[in-house]
Nucleic acid binder design. Structure first.
Length: 188
DNA sequence: CAGTGGATGCTCT
DNA sequence: GAGCATCCACTGT
């Protein structure tokens, strides 16, 4: 399955399907190990209630980035999914860094390598994504997406950091990874 | 380890 | 003016 086919389908298939893909921004990035799904009928989603203001990109074609400012400080990046007008997207929460580690370290400052991309705000900082990338299509030469080279075992959990629809298990984490935003003995 | 609080900007009421 | 799809530095065990 191509990247375009994956993200053009239901966000609830695309979110787990994106685990194990490698995302590179100008050659810097890694394997996607943690994501969350959001969609228009979901009270936790920015697209809830229809296209307005910052969320309009979520209603555009699949395969473009929705980047927003979180808590006034961080950027968070989503991949828009589904048919245009559906307001669905996958929040990128963590990568396993594989390419451009030195570039990430210089962008992230003096943190442990474990924390380079382990969290939505950290990930965007490490990859150099900002509001300027909102609406950008995930196509070369700036972006590349490489399919998984092995089958990922995926865990499903409630989403993190939200106050509404907290019961929905729409967070997906690669089992056994040590690069998720909630590390510990259990990968989830 | 766990828990708390501050920084900061945009959307919504 | 409140709330937020966060992170970091700090505190106390």
């Amino acid at each position: 399955m191509t990247f375009h086919e994956l993200v053009a389908g239901s966000v609830h298939d695309a979110a787990p399907g994106l685990i194990g893909w490698t995302l590179l921004v100008d050659g810097v990035g890694g394997r996607i190990v943690e994501v969350e799904a959001y969609e228009e009928t979901d009270p936790a989603s920015h697209s809830f209630g229809g296209p307005r203001g910052r969320n309009v990109v979520m209603f555009g074609p699949a395969g473009q980035l929705y980047v927003y400012r979180s808590y006034g400080i961080h950027w968070c990046a989503n991949i828009v999914c589904g048919a245009p007008g559906h307001g669905a997207a996958v929040l990128l929460r963590a990568l396993e860094p594989t390419h451009g580690l030195d570039e990430m370290r210089s962008r992230r400052g003096p943190v442990a390598d474990r924390l380079l991309c382990s969290g939505p705000g950290r990930l965007t900082q490490a990859l150099g994504l900002t509001g300027a990338d909102n609406g950008a299509r995930l196509v070369p030469p700036r972006f590349s997406l490489v399919p998984p080279d092995r089958v990922a075992h995926i865990l499903r959990t409630p989403r993190i950091g939200i106050t509404r629809a907290t019961e929905a298990e729409w967070r997906y984490v690669e089992a056994g990874t040590s690069w998720s935003s909630r590390p510990g003995r259990r990968a989830a």
